[in-house]
Design a protein around this nucleic acid. Sequence first.
DNA 1: GTAGTACCTCTGCAGGACGC
DNA 2: GCGTCCTGCAGAGGTACTAC
Length: 212
Amino acid sequence: MDRIGTDESGKGDYYGPLVVAAVYVGKGDDRKLRNMGVRDGKKLRDDRVLSLERKIKDGFEHDVVRISPGKYNALYDKLGNLNVMLAWAHARAIENLLPRVICDMVVSDQFGDERFLEERLMDEGRKVRLVQRPRAESDLAVAAASILARAAYLRFLKGMRMKYGVIFPKGAVEVYEAGKTFIELYGLARLGEVAKLHFKTTEKIKENLKQL
DNA sequence: GTAGTACCTCTGCAGGACGC
DNA sequence: GCGTCCTGCAGAGGTACTAC
């Protein structure tokens, strides 16, 4: 069955962007994806993710929405809710992809209330059937999207490392040292350029600085 | 307010497959 | 047989939302 799969990356990471990807998978494409070795991007090593990214981009219609940390913090202040922001980003990726494909079904991960995304799409006049479910990565269309999102996240993180000369760890553990280094180099006011400020991690980094 | 459940990330460990 | 790689699972860190 043809469908669009969507997934996000960077949601649980303190540093770096939030990325949402959408991939269109047509009838009979599942076998192609399976043969390529596509599965949940979270379960693949970084180098494998980057090699699969090229194959997916070459073989399938897709769209990737990147929300930089600065834009992320501004949107979070405005929307006040991570799930609303996620819905906005998923809808954006779907909207960008729909003009290029003929498809009325979208499969995505469960995040909050599915009405968030449905309402966003209806606002744009899109008539698609939305299927939101836990562990949606078991669907190959969602798995392909998770790989594109993950690859875009990794590239963005690499770009930040080149720009600021600081190695930003993934996840939300062991991020304090990088935060301390960044603030020493660029100041606390610019932390929002590289990190998601609403994480409790921000307060912990500030507390660590006070103790020094 | 708290517990449960959904998502994300990471590391570490164990078991199987594969090549030398 | 041994070393390497892949895969799956568990646990710990983060987030939000819902139900009680």
